[in-house]
């Protein structure tokens, strides 16, 4: 089973790095906070998703095992 992206909204401070690295699954709302696709991460984007998680300056993005 594929993983799902999840953001901790308390930790998130809206840097927007996730949307830059993973525009396929993350868009930003009008205040700069990420809106994450509700669907599992497709295998083709697995590496990018891991990169986005690692790059989050607030450590707010996580990959959850489905």
């Amino acid at each position: 089973m594929a993983d799902t992206l999840r953001v901790n909204p308390i930790n998130c401070s809206g840097h927007g790095v996730c949307a830059e690295l993973l525009p396929e699954l993350v868009t930003l709302d009008e205040w700069g906070y990420p809106i994450i696709a509700n669907s599992p991460v497709p295998p083709a984007l697995d590496l990018e998703a891991r990169r986005a998680v690692a790059a989050c300056p607030a450590l707010a993005l996580k990959l959850l095992r489905a």
Binding site: P9, I10, C12, S13, G14, D29, W31, G32, Y33
Partner: peptide
């Protein structure tokens, strides 16, 4: 005021 969407919305 902890979560961006609530704080702004």
């Amino acid at each position: 005021g902890q979560c961006g969407p609530c704080l702004n919305g």
